[in-house]
């Protein structure tokens, strides 16, 4: 059975696209046939993070309007087997994503894929709504910052009321909290909300904590999802998330300041 995962946040720039790329790559690395869809129509970015921008010919909207077939628009990742990217359109606006159109694409993907990862645009408008509507699970990306936490709470409200699973009276969308850009030193100094604070406020299960890390920018510069970098704390933290997502029990790391000395020394800001 195909699982559909939405990566969402409400607030912009918190790390949804970084996370979508890491998630899709991580699942494919585990052998699952995975498609990642960029729902950010008009602000295409996922192709850059995945390093396939030069291979985009057709996009999600072309498939919806039947100007191209799904197979024509899907880009097969050159590095990783089982990984496919469906880019967003750069020229249309979000209204081009019709409910019927999105559903048709998702249904076709469901025939052959194990996982469909939906990279949501920021906001709570149409684009974000379309990205979450068909989801079975949601990764709610949150920064340890007051406005991001508030927006995540808002998104949780929508996930619980405005999705297909709710409309059809199925079990609710499974929610996962993913805290990104976490700086343990600052938490220790009382300058940043802690994992515990945020979990207490949002009260959904914690999937992972991704530390603030320079390697995320390096990865995006190179078009290589950060999860492929085994020397990066952010990359390793994302790998842990995949493990937990697939049911493994993995201890949280990189959440305490100056603990686990070797990691601190070994990784520095990476």
């Amino acid at each position: 059975m195909t699982r559909i995962i939405v990566v969402t946040s409400g607030k912009g720039g918190v790390g949804k696209t970084t996370t979508s790329a890491a998630f899709a790559t991580g699942l494919a690395l585990q052998g699952y046939k995975t498609a990642v869809i960029d729902f950010d129509v008009g602000l295409r970015n996922l192709d850059l993070i995945m390093g396939c921008e030069r291979r985009v010919v057709y996009d999600f909207v072309n498939v919806i309007t039947k100007e191209a077939s799904l197979n024509q628009a899907l880009i097969r990742d050159k590095r990783i087997e089982n990984l496919y990217i469906l880019p967003a359109s750069q020229t249309r606006d979000k209204e081009a994503l019709t409910m019927e159109g999105v559903e048709a694409v998702i249904n076709e993907l469901k025939e052959t894929f194990d996982y469909i990862v939906c990279d949501s645009p920021a906001g709570i408008e149409h684009g974000a709504y379309m990205a979450m509507y068909f989801a079975d699970e949601a990764v709610v990306v949150t920064n340890p910052e007051i406005s991001s936490v508030r927006d995540s709470d808002r998104i949780l409200g929508l996930l619980a009321s405005k999705t297909k699973r709710v409309v059809e009276n199925k079990t609710p969308v499974k929610e996962h909290l993913l805290l990104t850009r976490y700086a343990p030193e600052r938490v220790k100094n009382g300058e940043m909300l802690s994992v515990g604070d945020i979990q207490e406020i949002l009260s959904i299960p914690l999937l992972g904590v991704i530390p603030e890390s320079q390697s995320v920018l390096t990865a995006s510069n190179q078009g290589i999802p950060v999860i492929m970098n085994k020397n990066s704390r952010a990359g390793l933290a994302y790998s842990d998330c995949i493990g937990r997502f697939l049911g493994e029990e993995i201890e949280f790391r990189f959440i305490d300041a100056k603990k686990g000395g070797i990691f601190g020394k070994f990784f520095g800001g990476r």
Binding site: V149, R150, N189, G190, E191, L193, D197, I201
Partner: peptide, 17 residues
């Protein structure tokens, strides 16, 4: 600590939301 202020403000805000 500013983090404590943030947490308190956030708790009130979210209860109101």
């Amino acid at each position: 600590k500013s983090a404590d202020v943030a947490k308190e403000r956030l708790s009130i805000l979210i209860a109101r939301d």
